[in-house]
Amino acid sequence: MTDAVPPTEVGPAKRRRPFPPKLRANPVLVKELRSRMRGGRAFLILTGYLTILAGFAGLVYILSVTALSSVSLGQADYSSVGIVIFGTVVLLELLMVCFISPALTAGSITTEREQRTFELVSTTLLTARALVMGKLGSALSYLFLLLFVAFPLQALAYVFGGVAAAEVLISAVLLVVTALATSALGLFFSSSQKRTLTSTVLSYAVLLLGMFALPIILAILLQFVPLLWFLGPTAGAPEPWKEAALIYIGVLAIATNPLATAFATETLLFDEQKVFFYTQSLGNGVDLPVPLPWIPYTIFYLVLTLILIRLSIRWVRRAEP
């Protein structure tokens, strides 16, 4: 890849690059989008995805309305139906993003190697960065399309009310950040591995570990750590700093998992009516400001995404086809 081209050379490295970079000028992105959106496959996936989402939303609606039909209906009851539909759609979107994005990116670079096109691209002026960003951009474009087409289903909840603008925005942030991180994960394995199969297996293994195994391990640890800590030499009333540390550790543990983050954020939004921080009283009466889990989640996964992209570029750059 030409990233290593020294500055003395007459070439793209010397040209002034537009800011922000023009995505449409990335040839990989254009090619990938042309291929991805051609034929019926892309539309079949879209249709299947929307059918599942609509099916679940419809089921939730029927169950909620049936449950509420026995009691007198007021505005508050309808709004709870809206909240449940909204939550269901967002959670399903979150799950789908988690499982579709590695499929879109885990083969992006390995397929180039398997098709023997990687060496052709390597003899052009295309940089490793442009190749990686083009692949990522293509996967994200499709993922964002999936999220966008599901918007009318989310909007169904607005008919019933009860869903605040903050909830809609936070859910959008969670979905976008999750799409970025899971796509970058697949891309990382695709650039570091030689075979698509290996890359796909590793992507899903790490994803499942992060989504299910890690929260269980953290939950178990958090059950025992406080006991061990509090039952030490200073047994009795916990020291305030230990109590604060445990609260923050708990929030960070939640923030490692998208589903836990979504649940916890929604609960705190509902209970505390705060978007960014809420306060928790410690044993000594001091109010501790605690961020809602979506904030550390966003920061953690955006940093992780950047690291994975940089590593992917490095792998592609140093790879000999």
């Binding site: 030409t2 081209v5 020294p6 002026l125």
Partner: peptide
């Protein structure tokens, strides 16, 4: 080695 971009052109 040192000017792969020029060689590729």
């Amino acid at each position: 080695r040192t000017h792969p971009g020029l060689v590729r052109r």
